[in-house]
Measured scan of single mutants.
Amino acid sequence: YHCKTPDCKGWCFFEDDVNEFTCPVCFHVNCLLCKAIHEQMNC
Rank of each mutant, 00 (worst) to 15 (best):
E15P: 09
K4C: 08
L32Q: 09
P24C: 02
Y1T: 07
W11V: 15
T5P: 02
P24K: 06
M41D: 15
T5Q: 13
A36N: 10
V25C: 09
N42L: 08
H28E: 13
P24Q: 10
P24F: 00
K35N: 13
E15H: 06
H28C: 08
C34H: 04
F27E: 08
K9S: 14
C8A: 02
N19G: 08
V18C: 12
L33A: 12
C31Q: 04
E39P: 13
N30G: 01
H2T: 09
C23V: 00
N19A: 12
C31Y: 09
P6Y: 04
H2I: 07
E20L: 09
D16I: 04
C3Q: 00
L32T: 12
A36P: 06
V29Q: 06
K35V: 05
E20A: 06
V29W: 06
H38Q: 02
D17E: 14
C3M: 00
C34Y: 01
A36C: 09
T5N: 07
M41W: 12
K4Q: 11
K35G: 14
I37A: 09
F21H: 02
C34G: 04
C12S: 15
K35C: 11
C31A: 01
H28Q: 14
D7N: 10
W11S: 15
V29T: 10
W11L: 14
L33E: 11
E15K: 09
C8F: 03
E39F: 08
M41A: 15
C8G: 02
W11A: 12
Q40H: 12
F27T: 11
T22I: 07
C3V: 00
V25Y: 08
L32Y: 06
H38A: 02
C8D: 01
C8Q: 02
P24E: 06
E15N: 06
N42H: 15
H28W: 03
N19W: 09
D17H: 12
C31R: 03
N42M: 10
C8V: 00
D17S: 12
E15C: 06
E15M: 08
I37P: 10
C12V: 14
G10E: 03
F21G: 06
C3I: 03
C23Y: 02
H28Y: 04
D7K: 11
E39C: 07
T22D: 05
A36W: 01
F13G: 06
N19E: 14
M41I: 10
C26P: 00
L33N: 10
H2L: 07
C31S: 04
E20N: 06
D7G: 14
E20H: 06
D16Y: 08
N19F: 05
V18P: 14
Y1F: 06
T22S: 07
H28F: 05
T22K: 10
C3G: 01
C43V: 05
Q40P: 13
D7C: 02
D16A: 13
T22M: 06
K4S: 10
P24V: 01
D16M: 07
C34I: 00
E39L: 10
P24L: 02
C26W: 00
E39W: 07
D16N: 09
H2M: 12
V25G: 04
C34Q: 04
D16L: 09
K35H: 12
L33F: 06
H28D: 02
W11D: 09
N19P: 06
Q40F: 03
K35L: 06
D7E: 13
L33Y: 11
H38P: 03
W11G: 09
F27Y: 09
N42R: 12
C26F: 04
V18K: 13
V29K: 10
C3L: 00
C23K: 03
A36S: 13
G10A: 03
N30L: 00
C31T: 04
C8R: 00
K9D: 12
T5R: 10
D7W: 04
H28M: 11
G10P: 02
G10C: 03
H2V: 02
N19S: 13
V25E: 10
V18I: 15
I37Y: 04
E39N: 11
H28R: 13
T22L: 09
T5K: 12
C26N: 02
E39S: 11
D7T: 05
D17G: 15
K4E: 05
L32S: 06
V29S: 07
N42P: 15
C3N: 02
D17Y: 13
K9E: 14
